[in-house]
Design a protein around this nucleic acid. Sequence first.
DNA 1: GTACGCTTGGAGAGCGCTTTCCAGATTGCG
DNA 2: CGCAATCTGGAAAGCGCTCTCCAAGCGTAC
Lengths: 343, 343
Amino acid sequence: MQSHRLPTLEDVARVAGVSRATVSRVVNGIRNVDPQLHELVWTAVEQTGYVPNKMARSLVTRRTGTVALVVSDSETHDDDPFMSRFFADPYFGRVVGGLMSVLRPASVQLALQMVGADGHKRLVGDLRNGQADGAVVLSLPARDPLPGLLADARIPAVLIGRPADPVPISYVDLANETGAALAADRLAARGCRQIGMISGPADVPASQDRITGFRRATARHGHAWVPTASGNFTQESGERAMRSLLAGHPQLDGVFVANDLMALGALLVLRDAGRRVPEDVAVVGFDDSSAALAARPALTTVRHPLEDMAAEAAKLLLVRVEDPDARVSSVIYEPTLVVRQSA
Amino acid sequence: MQSHRLPTLEDVARVAGVSRATVSRVVNGIRNVDPQLHELVWTAVEQTGYVPNKMARSLVTRRTGTVALVVSDSETHDDDPFMSRFFADPYFGRVVGGLMSVLRPASVQLALQMVGADGHKRLVGDLRNGQADGAVVLSLPARDPLPGLLADARIPAVLIGRPADPVPISYVDLANETGAALAADRLAARGCRQIGMISGPADVPASQDRITGFRRATARHGHAWVPTASGNFTQESGERAMRSLLAGHPQLDGVFVANDLMALGALLVLRDAGRRVPEDVAVVGFDDSSAALAARPALTTVRHPLEDMAAEAAKLLLVRVEDPDARVSSVIYEPTLVVRQSA
DNA sequence: GTACGCTTGGAGAGCGCTTTCCAGATTGCG
DNA sequence: CGCAATCTGGAAAGCGCTCTCCAAGCGTAC
């Protein structure tokens, strides 16, 4: 084992009896190098245990081989504890898993970045000079200025979930409206007469789309008006919303809940209220997260292929990193309904 | 906005009319620099929009300001899909959240690294020359060689969960035995006569400790023999284990389940079998994950302060990065029992 | 036999930053 | 008032790598 200093290109060159340039060419597999020299160099590399220094390489190539996963919450102050709660959400893990599935084969690193309202400028600065080659952005709140800043700075970036305001930036998203419509159709098909909805926060695009899509579809089925209570995507808020919905509309016999976690809460409240699911009240969730399977009765829900979407985002980003002038593009995934027991 | 080239130290120096060295000193807050010059330099920095280039800085300082979160699964081949499943586990998110809570205030980046059996050597190589300043290791399988390799290479590293074999490396862990004993005490206090256990995989240290601790404590309470079924920490495996346990020991009136997810499964099976919880069968889980609260009845469980532990791991790592010769240390957390409804 | 084209390896100029070493300026004290 | 001691800012040497020239070396054709 080397004492302290790690072997450098120089060392390998000396051992192999060639110049640094030649070693560099061999290591990077470039150009025509005499096969004999090629061989010679490789043995020298093995022998010295040489590993190229990433920093030095990046300094000249202007490439880091890293992309950032930016969790942006512009409404949160930088040292708020809020965001750590976000990490516990299955959402986060699914995204990471999806990203990794394409990043790892491409030998690209993933660096985690959290940024609150105050960090936007610094983040863009850091990104601009090679903190990372690009960024996948998870924009929590509505009207996040970050996508715009990123676009202005010409930093390769891909959003997961469409931006609230139109911005020239690539993104992947789910056809949330279609998904919500699927839920509405199911409820209607079951013959529900009095349909309600538990929505997410009103200012999140994905949440808005689910509301719009659900309303439009129920209207098509003859339900002019759908009572709605809103939560913030946590189980607890789902319980609260269900309680209020039930209080206002006792004959409710079908409800669409904008995510599975809230649906879980709704299920508990319904049970406590003595309603059978799905006999008395049919429930449809959204996301098809692991919670949906864990629920009793198992949740009928709209499948949200988050892993695939994250993987696609990673692919788009990689393309964009390769060619910064590539066309801005978006990929919209079609949700499907997963029928289980709750509706 | 600059056209293409970002401003460098040189540029700032020219604008301020001083040398690069002086700008560097000011930017890094070093040495005595004339307050007037200091001021001058800062305005030049603002004016040019200068952001130090991390790569160049790292190249000379040998510091990256990044630590890696290594998810090691030496039993998995590098392109197995297994690990992506791991990300969806709340465990992962809790660790990330805990790490971030100390890394972010310290302005240290977190880079995600997954590594299977084949990647160990490369990982160590990459780490050794400045991929990252150190690593927090999440070692999934038993007998992972990685901790040893890391120690040999003198790479600052901290494990979450004790290593299977003794290795000179820092770690944080939970007093799993104590936790299991807490569960046993609770079951005994409730007057359970026929106690069973659903354990995790036999080769994972944490799992072993829970088994040992539970057996020892039940023995103290006069239960010489505890029937045990094992799972792999998933809900589904918990269901299976519960079914087999119930089949073999119909008069079971108390069960300790080695994690909450499996406990969730056990609860479902018990309900299907017509057993009331906790009246007929008392159930104690482990982890106090969000699943424990979501369960009905809410799960009595052993609290596993994973976020705190991860935060501590980050602190230990930071210390070690600062002083590589710091003493190897371990921090063991004491679990507590969270009594809810299931026992 | 000379000229010309092509291949191949080496020299060397940076990439942007930190940091050591030194010279010049300033101060304190005899 | 002079000399040593102290402080400040600049020049310059790298950190390890890539990549653009350039000079040989070789083969071919005239």
